[in-house]
Design a protein around this nucleic acid. Structure first.
Lengths: 342, 342
DNA sequence: ATGAAAGCGCTAACAT
DNA sequence: ATGTTAGCGCTTTCAT
């Protein structure tokens, strides 16, 4: 079995006390230069690594961050996680990722699991099913560090990081209108999510600005965020069967966008001839789709980075943090063939 | 600041000793039923969680697994990681993911980082640049648990899990031949990787079986596995500029496949009219591409699962493990329009 | 049936 | 300049 070296091994080998070794290793000025050199060289030779668990036990920190997301196999989240890890790594934290698969029960279990692992803080993006925020409220009140990103909790006053969902949505809808589409459906995630609400608002306001009539029957919520194929298929079927069929769909979620494309293909509905498409997605192959997809892209990587920086700052704060901010980052609209009038 | 409860808090509150509390919590039979009940109820009430760090320090295990992959934003790896986490989670381990971005230096630094975190074992998929395996050899000799998956180390005798790269490659190449393509180029990853060698073999043998002449100039290695756009572009340019231009390309890596599609699109080369394509990729949107992509799909999720099971078995083994196995899983060929003769 | 104390690896307060 | 020791949370051996 593999056995790592400890400070004791060094002390024994060199005939010193463990504290001397510890001090030498940490560069204390009260250690003689020869001793210091001796220790450092020997430590280097045996490839000594301090045991992070012992350190954690001592300073009462696990040096780990818990992450709660819907799914890693979602381009938005995988990019955000990349951002999270890039910061965490440099700051000496590791990251424990958990997936809700859009289930509130699973989310709650994940949070419990992360707490049982004594993570130092939580980076949370709510599941589409979540409405009960008491567990977060409780933790937050107890002073436990939590930062929400993307799918944030409306009524908890913590740090939050999101894209400018309203604006992203407004621009995408306006672009469809400017391209000549008038009956724009909106396929979106659960109404529980604040991002869904913001995106719906942006959509509505764009319609209003251009005097396009708002038709409630064109709004379809998929409460499982595209996880359940049948749900999306049903929603699209309903849209296609309307007397006044939409000529475009604006889709408000990463997973839903690709699902929608697959279903339209299955139904042999031509894009953009029969129906134009634009949607939120961070996929980097959207350009290769048939047709190339018009997308609203979020700065997922930076969102992950900023959220992590905020969280670590709270964790390492000497005093209880009481002032919280919400950061909002711009989205980018990339226009491609899927939203061109033919 | 947030402060979790300890066994001491319970002992104090209940006027017991810490050892009694510990035993009660662990269901020891030598504790009176009333005491046990008292402790359990109080623990429940205050939502007590044992400190995993203290436990880790005690039993000399970090209960964490180190993972080394090229990139998480690669469908193959993100699925494999999903498989890894699904097993690790259930077995009480957490997973620390590091990315090499196909750099050997980075890979080495990642391994050092993971060791400094005292991970209990390593799940490794080599970078395309890696040739020096001494660090793995050293660790393996010292009895440190390592399992390789996907990009395995040829000359280290440990557990290994891969797809049947030879067969996957053979079938894909044969399918192109059967579809009527005769000049099949092979765009592949660094020749350092055993998977590249196996896939090249499968390709060659399929040609030979069907009496198709093997042309070395049709083999293009991208040593950075599609990380560097220019490299792939250059390789494809060379293929297109050949006097006898290939009529198909068989691509041997996830990242390269999408890169190649993007570049052909940029060069306005029509697929499959000008050049047919089939490639290794685990993308679940390959069907939505223009044209829908013929792919070799690997059971990435299971590969991750099996590798993790093997690793945990080695970690938890009471005796040094000396017998190692290599598991090989079948690939699936999914035929779509990108490989149809027109 | 319960308590006292040692020990896991490390740091830091307290000797000397 | 270096050594001794306590303590972080928990389990476990040894007492009682």
């Amino acid at each position: 079995m593999f056995q790592a070296y400890t400070i004791k091994d060094i002390a024994k080998a060199l005939g010193l006390s463990t504290s001397t070794v510890s001090r030498a290793l940490n560069g204390s000025y009260e250690i003689g230069n020869e001793t210091k050199k001796l220790v450092l060289e020997y430590a280097e030779k045996i490839n000594y690594r301090p045991n992070p668990i012992a350190l954690s036990l001592k300073d009462q920190k696990s040096h780990s961050l818990g992450v709660v997301v819907a799914e890693v196999a979602n381009t938005y989240f995988s990019q955000a996680i990349n951002g999270i890890e890039s910061i965490a790594y440099n700051r000496g934290y590791h990251v424990i990722i958990t997936q809700t698969h859009e289930s509130a029960a699973r989310e709650s279990a994940n949070v419990q699991h992360l707490l049982s692992r004594h993570v130092d803080g939580l980076l949370v993006s709510l599941s589409s099913e979540t409405t009960d925020l008491t567990q977060y409220k409780y933790l937050h009140e107890k002073g436990f560090p939590i930062v929400f990103f993307d799918r944030v909790a409306a009524d908890i006053d913590t740090h939050k990081v999101t894209a400018d969902n309203y604006k992203g949505s407004f621009e995408a809808t306006e672009h469809l209108i400017n391209s000549g589409f008038m009956q724009i459906a909106h396929l979106t995630n659960s109404a529980n999510l604040m991002i869904s609400q913001k995106r719906l608002e942006g959509y509505k306001d764009a319609l209003e600005k251009h005097n396009v009539c708002y038709r409630p029957e064109l709004i379809k919520h998929c409460n499982h965020g595209g996880m359940i194929q049948e749900e999306v298929e049903e929603a699209i079927k309903e849209l296609l069967n309307l007397d006044e069929r939409p000529d475009a769909i604006f889709i408000a979620s990463d997973r839903l966008t690709t699902s929608c494309m697959a279903i339209l293909k299955k139904f042999k509905v031509k894009v953009p001839e029969d129906i134009a498409i634009s949607g939120f997605t961070n996929s980097d192959v959207a350009e290769l789709f048939d047709p190339p997809l018009t997308v609203v892209r979020q700065p997922a990587f930076q969102i992950g980075q900023i959220a992590t920086e905020m969280l670590i700052k709270v964790i390492e704060s000497k005093y209880p943090v009481t002032e919280f901010v919400t950061e909002t980052l711009d989205t980018v609209l990339i226009k491609r063939a899927s939203s061109e009038k033919v």
